[in-house]
Amino acid sequence: MNTERLYLYTRFERFWHWAQTLLILVLLVTGFEIHGTYRLFGFETAFTVHNACAWTWFVLYAFIVFWMATTGEWKHYVPTFLKLMDVVRYYVSGIFKGEPHPVPKSERSKHNPLQRLTYLGIVSVLVPFQMVTGFLYYTYNQWPAFGFAGALTLQVVAVLHTVGAFAFLAFVIVHVYMTTTGHTLTAHIKAMFTGYEDVPRH
């Protein structure tokens, strides 16, 4: 395959990608233990670690938003429906037939239409949803002072937060699978360590 090497992922981009990966995995493991799914660290330790990771992620998320806004990287996440169905068909059948990707990566466009919609949905909907429900869960004893008493129940917030956790778990599983769909099995993963990726010439 005729390829060219492109520098696609900056040092900070790679840092926050792996930092978020670690935080999400720890939050999932400790969160499900807090929920009573299993016993691994013990409730108190899991609770402490979970909250520390949550606040760390909140700070990191603020830096990521600021970085995207000031560097122009937000342009790579602007949604588009151009060739969206071509990308869907590629992942459903074309990839198994050895067909070329309908939207190759480039320095101008690092994410295909399906990725853009997915990442935008996670950054603008799922992450804030999980942070808000987590904050409400954490501050349950302060609800009367916030004026939430009677308007919400702890059980509803707990269920919503757990639903968000399962959504993140589903994303992680799909995301890990998608990392194997490059021109080699590890091409995408290597790119998130080095910043460089070999992509088909177009």
Results as ranks from 00 to 15, higher is better:
R39A: 14
W74F: 14
W57L: 12
H175G: 02
A167E: 05
A187I: 02
V157L: 03
N141K: 14
H17I: 10
K83R: 15
V176E: 06
L120K: 09
G121Y: 09
Y77W: 11
A151V: 10
T21H: 07
T56M: 11
V49W: 10
L120Q: 09
F47V: 07
A52G: 04
M178P: 00
G121I: 12
F66N: 08
G98N: 07
F135G: 06
V59Q: 06
V88W: 04
P200M: 05
G72W: 10
H188S: 10
L169W: 01
F168N: 07
H50K: 09
V199R: 00
Y177K: 02
T37Q: 12
R11L: 14
Y9K: 02
L82D: 14
T3C: 08
G94R: 04
L28H: 04
G147K: 08
V163N: 11
Q155A: 15
T181R: 09
W67P: 00
V78Y: 05
Y61K: 06
H101R: 11
L126W: 13
Q142D: 14
Y137N: 08
T10S: 14
W143Q: 03
Y77V: 07
W74L: 11
F96N: 05
G147L: 09
T186H: 06
T45Y: 14
E197S: 02
M1Y: 05
V65P: 01
G98R: 09
F129V: 03
E73K: 14
T133I: 09
M131Q: 04
I24P: 00
W55K: 07
V103F: 03
V156R: 09
V132G: 03
H202T: 13
G150L: 07
T162N: 15
L22H: 05
L28F: 10
L185T: 14
R14K: 10
V78D: 02
Q130L: 13
V87R: 00
F15R: 06
Y137P: 00
A167I: 04
F135A: 13
V199T: 01
E197Y: 01
L152C: 04
I95R: 10
T184R: 09
D198C: 00
M1Q: 06
R89V: 03
V87W: 00
E73F: 04
V157F: 01
W74A: 12
L126H: 08
H175M: 07
G98M: 10
I95A: 07
F41C: 06
S109W: 04
T181A: 05
V159I: 15
V163R: 08
L25D: 02
L120T: 15
F148C: 04
W67Y: 15
Y9E: 03
L136V: 03
R89K: 15
L27T: 05
V29Y: 02
H188K: 08
L117K: 05
W143L: 12
T45A: 13
T3Y: 05
A52F: 15
L114D: 08
S106E: 05
Y77E: 01
T194V: 02
V156K: 10
G72I: 14
P79N: 09
Y38T: 14
